[in-house]
């Protein structure tokens, strides 16, 4: 554990709390892509199956439970409790175009060919692109509420901080995991355009609005 990893995890946790709090307080999930949230639940479910096979630390186990529980809670809020506010007309990204290639790639490029390892690899690949339905939705409507922007910024920062953590770990332990690193870089790059808009607009008090 190092400062980059810890702040990365905290950014991830803050993102989830911002999202749940926004939906709960406004009693609405307008502007939120249910499809991205379904992909995140699939990511955590396939990655954290190792909860039953390998123990790392209390911290790891606790965070895995939190990520799993909150991802399913988010899906419940979007598809059940506040279903009437779900903007499904704008949430039209075809998620099979992300799931199937991630699965195919996980079967082809992995560290070790067994059930848990392929699912772990699938979760890494899928996570790198899981935000696309949400970014697609923002681009379709041409705008995002400030709170949704804060959510996206925290969520994007998490993997960027993990990249610093991987550099640090390589320097101090000689540890590296190419699959996680390449996917993490792809994931962070997908947020770059958003980061630019966030810094130049949202932080200056303006609404995130895309040029027409």
């Amino acid at each position: 554990m190092n400062i980059f990893r810890l702040t990365g995890d905290l950014a991830h946790l803050i993102a989830i709390i911002i999202l749940l709090h926004k939906i709960w307080k406004s009693r609405s999930c307008a502007g939120i892509s249910g499809k991205s949230q379904v992909l995140f639940a699939l990511v955590y479910t396939t990655r954290y199956l190792d909860l039953v096979t390998s123990y790392v630390s209390i911290y790891n186990t606790f965070m895995k439970f939190v990520f799993l529980a909150t991802s399913y809670a988010t899906i419940y809020l979007i598809y059940v409790k506040f279903k009437a506010t779900y903007d499904h007309n704008h949430d039209t990204f075809r998620i099979e175009f992300l799931i199937l290639p991630s699965l195919a790639l996980a079967l082809l490029i992995n560290h070790y060919f067994n059930f848990l390892e392929v699912l772990w690899t699938f979760s890494i690949y899928l996570e790198s692109v899981a935000i696309l339905p949400q970014l697609f939705m923002v681009s379709k409507t041409g705008e995002a509420e400030s709170i949704t922007s804060h959510y996206l910024f925290a969520l994007g920062s998490y993997r960027a901080l993990y990249i610093l953590n991987w550099i640090y770990r390589y320097a101090t332990e000689g540890h590296y995991d190419l699959i996680a690193i390449v996917a993490g870089v792809v994931q962070t790059v997908l947020y770059c355009d958003f980061f630019y808009l966030y810094i130049t607009k949202v932080l200056k008090g303006k609404k995130l609005q895309l040029p027409a």
């Binding site: 790392v56 790891n60 965070m63 990520f67 560290h111 953590n165 540890h175 699959i179």
Partner: peptide, 10 residues
């Protein structure tokens, strides 16, 4: 090098 015995990150 990645360990195959389990992943220690989230």
């Amino acid at each position: 090098v990645a360990t195959h015995q389990g992943h220690d990150e989230l």
